[in-house]
């Protein structure tokens, strides 16, 4: 049975949840791809997402891998269109309207109101991610070290993630 329609539905829906970034959609991404459709396991999703943080460009391109696993190259393409299509069309329309909205007072209200919501959703995504990724003293130490180093020094996060891969390979 073709999974293409399900891929379109799932990723188009997830697309609309990515307020403030891809992580906001993570809890639903997990439920839909792992629990509902069994396209991959939770550890696989965690690993793909983490690998995606090392890739350049938009940080949700890992969805391409899910599409490819489920339905080959066509699946990969379908997932990109479904995930980025709705928000891109919205951005195109709002971008043109925004100029005309000019000093519409609700513009700032929406911006101020969405800031805490998007940070809350980012944290919520992080918690549901950490439930699988942080499972003991070693992983907790790696997470804490990465967090502290990033706050203290200006360093490219991709390098830290690479370093964590080496630490992981040596210790686990």
């Amino acid at each position: 049975m073709s999974q293409i329609p399900a891929l379109v539905r799932v990723f188009a829906y997830l697309s609309l949840l990515t307020v403030g970034g891809g992580m906001a959609a993570f809890p639903e991404l997990k439920i839909l791809t792992v629990d509902v459709h069994h396209w991959l396991t939770f550890p696989q999703l965690i690993h793909l997402y983490s690998l995606g943080q090392m890739a350049p460009g938009p940080n949700m391109m890992m969805i391409v891998a899910i599409g490819e696993w489920v339905a080959g190259l066509l699946g990969a393409l379908v997932v990109v269109v479904a995930f980025f299509g709705p928000t891109s069309i919205l951005a195109l329309l709002v971008g043109r309207l925004w100029i005309r909205l000019g000093k519409w007072p609700w513009r700032e209200s929406i911006q101020l109101g969405l800031a805490p919501v998007s940070i809350g959703l980012l944290l919520a995504g992080c918690l549901s991610f950490a439930r699988e990724a942080v499972v003991g003293l070693e992983t907790a130490s790696i997470a804490a070290a990465t967090f502290l180093i990033l706050l203290r020094w200006k360093i490219n996060p991709a390098l830290l993630i690479l370093a964590a891969a080496v630490v992981g390979a040596l210790t686990f």
Binding site: H47, S50, L51, E132, T139, T146, V167, A169, T171
Partner: peptide, 21 residues
Amino acid sequence: AALKGVAAAAVGLILATALQL
């Protein structure tokens, strides 16, 4: 094993992003 380390580091990265934002 390497991916386990990578996933843990990703948690630290997301938390740092949330705090900075």
